[in-house]
Design a protein around this nucleic acid. Structure first.
Lengths: 131, 131
DNA sequence: AATAATATGTCAACCATGTTGACATAAAAA
DNA sequence: TTTTTATGTCAACATGGTTGACATATTATT
């Protein structure tokens, strides 16, 4: 269990959100929108597990920065779904690029063995001690 | 990669820190102290990757609540190491209990296949949509 | 048609937690 | 003796979150 815990610390340290002027929830938002296709605002907010206010403030900024589009559903005009703009897709790729490379390198090293990969990540985290 | 990301969201949602009056960094601190044995304050702080001030404020509270002891190193009296008190160990176990159970149940279900376990966790996260 | 419920947006007030930079002390190293 | 290291603490400020009240448009219910 500590493996999962520590591995994730390492995993998330591979991303530098500041560089892209995103906060954690905005990153989670973009990531979710990119991975799920088509989910209503309400559902995304529920997944993020943050207050409506926090959600809206963050979303507003992403929309203003033209990273995300809001699309009103045709069946039920109360509902809006989110999608990434071209710019949003590009940013998302860039943000995750470094992490992706490192993770892929690790999986290569351990022949795609998930257990070994996670242990490796976990070790990398703990070994930051010795730097 | 999204598997690791989503799986961890689910993983961390299994713990309710509020119930135990801990914030995230205090939990990380306790968790680290429990898993590593014997690490200096400086090293733990570096691992947590937070400012000295944030570290000290959080640590102070843990010490006041008698969850953690500070031990001055004999070799080098400048250095202090941290250890959990009995009460700290107990709390740590309690905090992680529910998570541990759920994770073990998942690993049982997938015959300890890490890849499947992580995918399962990830799915559980996404499927919170349908509640 | 009238009323209720749903999905969303927004504001103000407040709170939790973090960062930075300056300063301080004790111990060890040079 | 001087410098460096490991630690502690303060004040000022920044970031980001929550809550509760209120508002609108649309759909569902009666």
């Amino acid at each position: 269990m500590s493996t999962i815990f520590f591995a994730y610390q390492r995993f998330s340290s591979m991303i530098d959100l500041k560089k892209y002027n995103l906060n954690k929830n905005q990153h989670r938002m973009i990531y979710l929108v990119a991975e799920l296709n088509i989910a209503s605002i309400g559902k995304i907010q529920k997944l993020l597990n943050i207050s409506r206010q926090a959600f809206n403030v963050n979303l507003r900024e992403l929309v203003e920065r033209k990273l995300v589009n809001e699309v009103t559903s045709k069946k039920d005009k109360r509902i809006k779904t989110l999608e990434l703009t071209e710019k949003g897709i590009e940013l998302n790729n860039k943000v995750n690029e470094e992490q992706k490379k490192e993770i892929e390198a690790i999986f290569d090293r351990v022949n795609n063995d998930w257990e070994k990969a996670m242990i490796e990540l976990s070790k990398e985290y703990i070994n930051e001690l010795d730097k």
